[in-house]
């Protein structure tokens, strides 16, 4: 547990110190959300109907930007070799780094999303559920993304490849995240069923993704 905390703290310190990675992610989120009304025209009804979808897609794209770097630095400077030799198992290493990624990327994006909801005329009753779905769904993004990051670590054009690999795998998270918000803002129904499925996806990702990512990392350090 000591090693887990140390690694988590170090990754957060690096995210903070290694020059504005969080800032770039948030900036990208803002830019993508801004591009849509500019391309669709300021039809407020249309925008409020697609707001949840736009916010979720933009969040995924923004998160992908930083996911590519998740293990890259540690591979390049030899840290990954040392991490692979214990005392924390590689599954634990992935979990610590995934959790750090969520704290340094998923959480700031979630905090920023309601502000961008204003730009998209998201209906008032949608804000609470938007924040809730993003809190519940972003761990799945970080942990599933960790699998993709571990797989593409030594690939050429790793960043582009990561996007190709990850976007299909993010479909369930995206669908149930958006469905929860739409259930409240459009259908005036219950958001509970899709929201619970989203929570289940996140929990499954937190448990299973470290296994797959650690298996990939074992091959990467050979």
């Amino acid at each position: 547990m000591m090693a887990f905390r140390q690694l988590l703290a170090r990754d957060l310190a690096l995210a903070w110190k290694e020059g504005g990675a969080v800032g770039i992610t948030l900036g990208f989120f803002l830019v993508v959300v801004t591009m849509l009304p500019l391309s669709l025209g300021p039809d407020l009804n249309l925008l409020s109907r697609i707001a949840a979808g736009v916010l979720w897609v933009a969040l995924l794209l923004a998160a992908l930007l930083s996911l590519g770097r998740l293990f890259e630095g540690d591979l390049e400077d030899g840290t990954l070799d040392v991490l692979a030799m214990g005392p924390l198992s590689l599954e634990g290493v992935v979990a610590a780094k995934g959790f750090a990624h969520w704290l340094s990327t998923g959480l700031p994006l979630t905090v920023m999303a309601p502000l961008l909801g204003l730009l998209l005329n998201l209906p008032g009753e949608g804000y609470l559920i938007l924040i809730a779905t993003m809190l519940a769904g972003t761990p799945a993004v970080s942990f599933l993304g960790a699998v993709g990051a571990a797989l593409t670590l030594r690939a050429r054009r790793g960043g582009l490849l990561l996007a190709l690999l990850m976007l299909p795998l993010f479909v369930p998270t995206l669908v149930f995240g958006i469905a929860s918000v739409n259930a409240v803002t459009i259908e005036a129904g219950s958001a509970l069923p899709p929201f619970l499925i989203l929570v289940a996806i996140s929990l499954a990702a937190i448990v299973l993704a470290p296994l797959a990512a650690a298996a990939a990392l074992r091959f990467q350090v050979r």
């Binding site: 593409t152 030594r154 690939a155 054009r157 790793g158």
Partner: peptide, 15 residues
Amino acid sequence: ALRTSIEDESLAANL
């Protein structure tokens, strides 16, 4: 794409 992007063939196969 993943297989063709990794030079080391055995690594590519495993991943």
